[in-house]
Amino acid sequence: MRRDDSGQFGTKHTLSDEYREYFEDYSDWVATHVDKERTRERLEAGVRAWLRFCEDEELDPLAADENDVRIYIDELVREEYAETTITRRVASVSKFYIYQRNDPRNTAEIDNPTEDISLPRDYGIQNLSEYVRVLDQEGKTDIISPSAAEVSKLFEHAPGKRSFTYTMNELVLRLFWETALRADEMSRVKMRNVDSENREITVRSAKLNRKEHPDLYHRCVWWSPDLDFLMKRWRPLRRNTADDPEYLFVNSSGEQLTPSYLSRIVKEAARRAGIQEPLTRDENGDVKQHLWTAHRLRHARITYLANQTDMTSTTFG
């Protein structure tokens, strides 16, 4: 059954206690920070819909990542919601995480999983409204491309003190740059798809549909000989986390790293290098989008290859 604009399937289908508590806390915050009643109603309706989705998926809202939001957007698109409704829903989700990030009761760092999502760029949605100006500064996000010299500063400031963490983070940063992979694509790289002899990684596209683009759904990316040392150093470190982990990048318990975690490595390296800066802020002055993200690194690499090399044709997927 299709959800209504409040995110419910019917008048009798309400949020469970756990998710209703998230909503009520957020609603109290909105009431004290948003003046216009109609805006408050829309923000609350959007977050109720998001929490309804999280409950359906048995997903902890505070553990949601970019891929979860994209699945949510895909569902809205599939159910043929109006573009204005989708933009309001996504803006409401973003607002929810701005609130969570500033809630003093949350001792852990809270990421905004909408941060690297652009509705015009990723979904072709152009019917934007005042509710999504914070999300899609389209005139900015598509023209800012850091130089190769600026990117090199990230490699020198990879976060992490232990050999495991530092090696992994530096390799993540360098692979982002050399392969132009998206964060969710890198998160899904499995060891069976890594060909060290040919320095090649087979990647499943995060954007293309297999039926519509069977020849492009999988593509190959390569790394330079300069990364051979880091790749060889990382292999035994990752193997020590678990019994032959399936994914290339894992945490100390051998679990797959999420796209948001990988993007956070880029943000932290930029902060440590002293080059991170806010790109957009919300109406409360809180940072909505940073200059340095995994997506920005991808954009910088593609721009560099197009403008500074003899590359004639490359499929980035």
Score class of each variant (00 low, 15 high):
211 K>N: 09
213 H>F: 11
213 H>W: 01
217 Y>W: 10
219 R>L: 11
219 R>W: 11
219 R>C: 07
220 C>A: 15
220 C>R: 15
221 V>P: 05
222 W>V: 14
223 W>C: 13
223 W>L: 11
226 D>I: 07
226 D>W: 10
227 L>F: 00
228 D>H: 06
228 D>V: 08
229 F>C: 11
230 L>P: 02
234 W>S: 03
234 W>R: 05
237 L>I: 00
237 L>F: 01
238 R>V: 05
238 R>A: 14
241 T>N: 00
244 D>P: 03
244 D>G: 10
245 P>A: 04
245 P>F: 05
245 P>C: 05
247 Y>W: 11
247 Y>Q: 01
248 L>I: 10
249 F>S: 04
249 F>Y: 06
250 V>C: 04
250 V>Q: 01
252 S>Q: 07
252 S>N: 05
254 G>N: 00
255 E>Y: 15
255 E>C: 03
256 Q>E: 03
256 Q>R: 11
257 L>V: 01
258 T>D: 01
259 P>M: 02
261 Y>G: 03
262 L>T: 02
266 V>N: 12
267 K>H: 11
268 E>A: 11
269 A>L: 09
271 R>T: 14
271 R>K: 15
271 R>E: 14
272 R>N: 14
273 A>Y: 06
273 A>S: 06
275 I>N: 05
276 Q>V: 10
276 Q>E: 15
276 Q>M: 09
277 E>L: 14
277 E>K: 15
277 E>A: 15
279 L>R: 14
280 T>H: 10
283 E>W: 15
284 N>R: 13
285 G>M: 09
286 D>W: 10
288 K>M: 08
288 K>W: 10
289 Q>I: 13
289 Q>M: 12
290 H>S: 15
